[in-house]
Amino acid sequence: MSNNSFEKELVKPEEVILWVPGDLTIDSIGSGWENIAMRGYTYNYLDVNIPAMRDYMIVNYKTDNLEMKRRGSNSWMSKHVNSGTVSLLTCGEDTRWAWNDDLEVVHVYIDHETVSNMANQVFDYDIANIRIPDEVGIKDEILPVLSSLLEQELRSGGVGGNVFVESIKNQIALHLLRRYAKLEFKEGLCKTGFNQIQHKLLVDYIREHISEKINLEDLALLIGLSVPHLMRKFKVDFGTSPAAYIMALRIQLAKKLLISKKDIPIKVIAGEAGFFDQSHMNRVFHKFFRKTPAEIRQEQAQKITQIQID
């Protein structure tokens, strides 16, 4: 979807019925879902002009052997649709659709920002433009399943509903990107690392909070970047990911404390260095040193004793 599409008066999910008259069968609007919506309709045969949509729209068909036509800027596209096939309205363009019999569908709407944010998490550079061309009556093994899960949640609900919907929304966004999207990347945004002030802010913050859980969101907020942009610049500036850098500091600190403060229990040192617990610290040390913290401490004590004897 190009940025120019946002200059138009785009149709929201709840406004589709004004352009495509039908009977509403299911509706998620008002259910608390964020940046995703579901609406079901039954239609008589129609030939209608549909203005540019605000959101990406996935049409799930519940009618078999129906001829579906779409006219874009140049010519008609025609396909026979069945249960399990989908159409995509995604380009932010005015289109004309027609079908020759009664029709039942369930629409899933997912907003542009969700797809854009997912793209920035998946790819190494910020996205300048995302375009997902319109499709008519395509076979897709994933979208009907995800849509069915959303419909089931809307009809019956359950514990953790918002978390469940959020996860399905992200899976839909990722699937659209992997299978249908055409992407244009912004050039040169991450060929350099942080400026001097940003670098110092990050280093100071991490060292001051090394005993606590450090979130990427907090680091990004600290220097005014998105999380994906932070991660890409961090790799350029530090040569590794934030998680790897933080873990290396925790290992260094824990090893220093093991040697310099031999009377402090290892579980206390694990907490001061920011490990979840002593078991977590044991696993990390064994991975990096092939030794446990206790073995490293004992080995250092033996070296000191040997020096004293000599």
Rank of each mutant, 00 (worst) to 15 (best):
N100K: 10
V227Y: 03
T63S: 10
W76L: 13
K291S: 12
N282G: 09
K62F: 13
Q300G: 06
R290M: 14
K69I: 03
K191L: 02
T192P: 01
K287W: 01
P13W: 01
I266D: 02
M281D: 06
N49Q: 10
H229G: 00
L222K: 11
A270R: 07
N49V: 12
Y56N: 00
K213D: 12
F275H: 02
V236M: 08
H229S: 07
S28T: 13
M38V: 12
I172S: 03
D263E: 15
E113K: 06
E151I: 13
V48S: 14
N117R: 13
E151A: 09
G188S: 10
E187C: 06
I17V: 13
L88Q: 03
L103C: 03
A294I: 03
V108L: 12
F238N: 08
K287I: 05
F275E: 06
R283C: 10
R39T: 06
D101L: 05
H280T: 07
L219H: 01
L225A: 04
K200T: 10
K262N: 09
L154D: 02
V159I: 15
F123T: 00
L201H: 06
R71Y: 12
M118H: 02
P144R: 01
F123Y: 14
F185C: 02
A254C: 00
M231Y: 02
K255N: 07
P228C: 05
I36A: 04
